[in-house]
């Protein structure tokens, strides 16, 4: 053959090899600077959350004589208005944040994937589903979460669900847009013409196209879920104060802010750093997996 593999002339070298066919994808991802450093930071936070509580003092042990102490050798992050050790509480809080982030993104992505696939392929359902999603999207997420929690009581599970539901429309819209564009691809039409049935078309030809953008979206949802959880905690609608979470530690620190600002600053910094790590990984994944999906989210 006289023609060499090229990209139909227009822009040489711009055609990116499809991600999933590359056996060294994982290596490729780790080589990306922001994925690497974000990943390291995130791994550190996970280790702290899992193992940290083994080495700290009891985060709910009261010590009224030791109230509102400034950070010192004994209490690295100082103590709160009940004399509890803020460092221990922040370490415990990491668990809640990470669990909420992970659970929300898993829940929202898996449910959204199913709804989006079905609605993208079944026309009758599509109109209804999309109107419901439009409606859901126009309710400010935090208010929706607040309302859901105030009606069902605040537990870890209700908090996760209440944060996940407002995130659903983003996932559904993304999946649906991928389905709608991929189903027009000639290779899908060729599969239809060769008698492949609908479920197989969805699983074999369409589902794989949703994975890369969904992984990216999942990291963003994870980050924003951790923020929402802290806001809920902060305004007193989140996980009850018996279980320390970064949000409710800061909520309790509000009254004493002018006296002891570190009660807010330390968990705040911990939260910001964790979310930053997640978002940086998300940006890196987006750049690596598919630069074109940047606009859709």
């Amino acid at each position: 053959m006289t023609d060499t593999p090229s990209t139909s002339g227009k822009a040489p070298g711009l055609l990116v090899a499809p991600a999933s066919s590359d056996p060294h994808l994982f290596v490729l991802l780790l080589r990306h600077r922001s994925i690497f450093w974000g990943g390291v930071l995130l791994a550190f936070m996970v280790i702290v959350a899992v193992l940290g509580p083994l080495f700290t003092v009891d985060p709910i042990a009261l010590n009224p004589l030791n109230r509102l102490k400034v950070p010192s050798g004994d209490n690295w992050f100082g103590t709160d208005y009940l004399g509890r050790d803020t460092f221990a509480r922040v370490i415990y809080g990491a668990r809640i944040s990470l669990v909420v982030g992970l659970a929300v993104s898993l829940f929202a992505v898996s449910l959204g994937l199913i709804i989006g696939m079905v609605s993208g392929y079944i026309r009758v359902l599509d109109a209804v589903v999309m109107r419901v999603m439009d409606g859901l999207m126009s309710i400010p997420g935090i208010l929706l979460a607040i309302a859901l929690i105030s009606l069902s009581g605040a537990t870890l599970m209700t908090v996760v669900i209440a944060i996940a539901i407002p995130e659903l429309p983003r996932v559904v819209r993304l999946v649906r847009s991928v389905v709608l564009s991929v189903r027009e691809e000639p290779y899908v039409e060729a599969a239809i013409a060769s008698g492949t049935n609908l479920p197989l078309i969805l699983i074999r030809h369409i589902l794989p196209n949703t994975i890369a953008p969904l992984i990216v979206l999942a990291t963003y949802i994870c980050g924003s879920a951790m923020l929402t959880e802290s806001i809920l905690g902060f305004i007193g609608a989140g996980i009850p104060p018996e279980i320390p979470s970064w949000g409710n530690i800061m909520s309790e620190g509000r009254t004493y802010f002018q006296l002891s600002p570190w009660i807010i600053f330390y968990p705040g910094i911990a939260l910001a750093v964790t979310v930053l790590a997640v978002n940086v990984v998300g940006d890196g994944l987006r750049d690596t997996l598919d630069p074109r999906i940047a606009r859709k989210m």
Binding site: S20, E185, P186, Y187, E189, A190, A191
Partner: peptide, 18 residues
């Protein structure tokens, strides 16, 4: 379906890249 088959214009989109 098997009796009629089609070849499309764009060779870059006619095969599932994965």
């Amino acid at each position: 379906r098997r009796d009629v088959q089609i070849v499309f214009q764009d060779p870059y989109r006619s095969l599932n890249p994965r």
